[in-house]
Simulated scan of single mutants.
Amino acid sequence: MKLLSGCPILEELEAKDLIVYTLCKEFPTDTDVPSLSNLVRANISDPHIQFDWIHNIHHLRTQLRGPFGFDTMFHNLIHLELIFDFNFRYLFRSQHKCRWLTKILKNFPKLQTLIIDEINKVDTVHDYCDGKWEDPTIISECLLSHLTTCSLRNYSHISCELQFAKYIMKNSRVLSTMTFQCAKFIETNTKLQMSRELSLYPRISGACKILCI
């Protein structure tokens, strides 16, 4: 906390494998929050870095252990890379992740590039995404005016991933590239079939190209 508070004009931050010990305070004050308002780029894999500290950021790459956080508005964020690390198993994890993603998009009104990855992903026999999918009633501003690039890495074509991809394609008015980077365990024939299927889904942007690699 002392280190970050002493860097008021810091522009780039990378925090990896960081362990932070803090004392719990019943009534935290404004002085407990580091001033990182000039930060424009960050690569964070540590949950102790609070997102509201970096609300003015432009480029953010962060590793998450579950679908939570991002309650802060990021008015200047144009590039976001979310890496989910699910080393532990819990029920409906992909379903929760995809629905959470559609909800937090409203917090990035100027977002142009969205990259979603999931490391330690394994082939699943069962698809635990049987719950009914519902699109948000309000379309996020970034989809209406700014999002041009969306990439889903380690894509495995399970129901909730597909529903999220379809939601992005049918609501992103200026989307130019939608990329599906298939998981390594996907066989070539299956990948070709997925590519043909994905190319048939409607896109509101006439300039949108679908890449399945």
Rank of each mutant, 00 (worst) to 15 (best):
S145K: 09
D130V: 06
L175R: 03
P109T: 11
R173E: 03
R89S: 10
N120D: 13
T22G: 07
R93T: 07
F70I: 06
Q193V: 08
W53P: 10
H146K: 12
H79L: 02
I54A: 06
V122D: 04
N154D: 04
P8N: 10
L18Y: 03
P47H: 09
Q112D: 14
C24S: 05
N43A: 03
P8G: 10
H146D: 06
R65L: 14
T72Y: 01
K121E: 12
P34F: 10
R99M: 09
V20P: 03
G6E: 14
E11D: 01
R41W: 13
L3E: 12
D30Y: 05
I204S: 00
L23V: 14
T179L: 14
D17L: 10
F164L: 15
C160P: 01
R153C: 13
L23C: 06
G206Y: 00
L64Y: 09
D30V: 10
C98K: 00
A42K: 05
C182D: 04
V174S: 12
W133S: 01
S145N: 08
C208Q: 05
S45C: 07
D135E: 12
D117Q: 12
D52S: 13
I104T: 05
N76R: 14
Y90I: 02
F84D: 04
F84H: 07
I104V: 15
W133E: 01
I116D: 03
E11A: 03
S151L: 08
L18C: 15
L36F: 07
F180W: 04
E187T: 01
L39G: 02
I158C: 08
M194K: 03
S5I: 12
Q163L: 11
L192M: 04
C212A: 04
S35P: 00
T149L: 15
L211E: 09
Q163V: 02
P47E: 14
I19R: 05
G131I: 00
K110F: 08
R61S: 15
Y21L: 13
S172N: 05
F51T: 15
